[in-house]
């Protein structure tokens, strides 16, 4: 079933809470769902004969600071009917809250923890919402567009100088050293051979 056919079915059931964007020329089409109806819509998609989206393929988010929203994007696939669907839920960037899909697909557990970790979206009803990839005391949400690094973690530095810069500094200091030892050359006994410098 195509996205627009699924949209017609959902519109009959959920009205304006599910809306479709105009289909893009290339790439995937998607449906936008209001956050408060999300679990209901997903349960309908999973359990209705003819839709049967049994596989929650992916759940992730995209940050849009210009529109002041974080979109949570859910990719669904039906193993039986071989069709797929993209659902989007918009959450306010200031305090993004989206209902958890864990009651519908258990795989949402880790996906939502990851989104919570990297975007700071809170999923209400999630059984164990903790940071997944980052340490528990990490500050900030790295995949947001305005994320600023905190400069290390517990004394572990997160910036490293370009090794070429370091090498150049060593070279420069060696050269300065050589120049210093060469310039106050005693006039009495000029060395027969120049002193070997450290830069080979």
């Amino acid at each position: 079933m195509t996205t627009s056919e699924i949209h017609d079915l959902l519109k009959a059931r959920f009205g304006e809470d599910v809306s479709a964007a105009p289909p893009p020329p290339k790439g995937d089409a998607w449906l936008t769902v209001k956050a408060e109806r999300l679990v209901e819509v997903c349960r309908f998609l999973k359990e209705t004969a003819g839709l049967e989206f049994d596989f929650c393929e992916d759940l992730t988010a995209v940050d849009w600071p210009k529109r002041n929203v974080i979109e949570v994007v859910v990719h669904l696939l039906s193993y039986k009917l071989k069709h797929s669907l993209v659902l989007k839920v918009e959450a306010d960037r200031g305090s993004p809250v989206v209902p958890s899909l864990y009651p519908v697909w258990k795989t949402a557990d880790w996906f939502e923890r990851e989104v919570y970790d990297l975007f700071g979206v809170t999923f209400t009803g999630h059984p164990d919402l903790r940071r997944l990839l980052l340490p528990d005391d990490w500050v900030g949400f790295p995949l947001r567009k305005d994320y600023a690094e905190q400069g290390g973690w517990h004394g572990i530095d997160n910036v490293r100088e370009n090794p070429l810069v370091e090498l150049k500094r060593l070279d420069d200091s060696a050269r300065a050293e050589a120049a210093k030892s060469a310039s106050p050359a005693p006039a009495a006994a000029p060395p027969a051979t120049p002193a070997p410098t450290s830069q080979a």
């Binding site: 893009p24 020329p25 995937d28 393929e57 992916d58 993209v86």
Partner: peptide, 15 residues
């Protein structure tokens, strides 16, 4: 151009 796409490939560890 602005848009989005999902690709699926069967990797050694699944989709």
């Amino acid at each position: 151009e602005a848009g989005e796409a999902l690709s699926r490939v069967e990797s050694a560890r699944g989709e």
